[in-house]
Computed example of a mutant assay.
Amino acid sequence: MAAPKGFALQRPPRDVRLDVLRGWLQVSIFIAHAFGAIYFWGIHASWGVSDSSEQFVLLSGLALGSVFTLKRARDGFAAALRDLGGRIRRLYLTHLVVFVLFAAMVFWARMTSPVPPEAAGWGWLAEHPLRAIAGTLVLLYQPAFMDILPLFVFCMLLLAPFLWLQERIGDRALALPFGLYAATQIFGLTPPGLGGTEIGFDPFAWQVLFLLGAWFGRRALLGVAPLPRHPALFAVAAAVVAAGLWVKLGHYGWAEPAPALLADAAEKPVLGPLRLAHALALAWLVAVLVPRDAPWMHGAVPRVLALIGQHSLHVFCLGLFLSWGVATALALHPAGAWWLELALIPAGVAALTGFAAVLDRRRQPARRVARA
């Protein structure tokens, strides 16, 4: 769908919901990666078959899709492509920096701890460093905690071709990501993991969420509602959420186990069909039921979450280190795990908040210059 003739694209006003939601997703990811047993019950991953990863990918596609479309309309396709290329390069370099620092932390912990902490997949780097470095550069060596940023790099490489195709054939362009997703589910397409690691997020499957988000973002920028508020959609979304809850309660032994076919359809690495449907159902319900700027969003806690959400990439990177540290502390001191978790999780969230506040203060001069 191209912009209507005479229709000038404008940057939409900031959606407070997205900042608050991104902040909550970062906190949820930190809690999930810490592998605790108390705060985990407060995040939606405990009560359904999708988690914050799906929403993070969908929202990233939405944001970058609208940014690329706006840049394309204002400055041309080449300028939009250069802007996207710069974003991909920065994300790729961010992944490499995080990888190096995380490896240093893991090996330092192994040398100094009386009980070496678990760190799946990092042994290949110590045993075959040159091969591991090559595998890291091509994003196929993914030891523990290093699997999500490569997915975003892959998805961003698909963004420009997808939006270019959408300009020419409209919504039929969605056949490309959904066709690749279907082929992945049927034929088991997945890149090979190197060094004994597995690809945590199969990019051939997960790209459908990112590109669907880009489709939403482009349509929203053009002033087109992606989906209507139809009662049938509420019924379908509620049924999908209920199915996800059934699968989860069955895992806990709190309900009759769901059929194996239903549980298998919720696998995370390949983004099983139920998992995909569950993530989309939650996203749609939040989009249609939560107003853009409700009064409660200006309370203290939502403001903190919004601050975190505005710096989600850097907060996410710091959260990887903090969550691994918490998980390691809980594993090394199982007898006191409950009180350690009660203390360390809030401390970690406070650290993420403080880090976001520092980043925000550093960004203030640039904002003033831009407005001037």
Rank of each mutant, 00 (worst) to 15 (best):
Ser50His: 01
Leu93Lys: 05
Gly309Ile: 01
Leu137Thr: 10
Leu332Ala: 15
Ala306Lys: 02
Gly121Met: 00
Ala283Asp: 07
Phe145Gly: 01
His128Pro: 00
Ser323Trp: 06
Thr353Cys: 09
Arg17Tyr: 00
Val241Trp: 02
Pro231Val: 04
Pro302Leu: 04
Thr112Ser: 13
Arg17Gly: 06
Pro257Ile: 03
Thr112Val: 12
Glu167Asn: 15
Asp264Trp: 07
Ala279Trp: 03
Ala327Trp: 08
Ala160Leu: 05
Leu21Met: 11
Leu18Ser: 14
Thr353Gly: 09
Phe355Thr: 12
His278Asp: 07
Leu285Lys: 03
Ala144Leu: 15
Gly348Asp: 06
Asp19Val: 04
Leu285Trp: 04
His33Asn: 14
Val224Pro: 00
Ala370Glu: 15
Gln55His: 13
Pro203His: 07
Pro203Trp: 03
Ala144Val: 11
Phe316Glu: 06
Ala79Lys: 13
Gln207Ala: 10
Leu318Thr: 12
Ala183Phe: 04
Gly250Met: 07
Leu91Gln: 10
Leu93Val: 15
Leu157Gln: 07
Leu320Asp: 00
Leu282Gly: 07
Trp215Thr: 06
Gly217Trp: 04
Ser323Glu: 09
Met297Ala: 13
Trp124Pro: 07
Val224Thr: 09
Lys5Trp: 02
Val27Asp: 03
Asp147Glu: 14
Leu159Tyr: 09
Ala34His: 08
Leu96Cys: 12
Pro203Gly: 03
Ala266Trp: 01
Leu165Trp: 14
Met111Trp: 10
Ile199Val: 14
Gly86Asp: 06
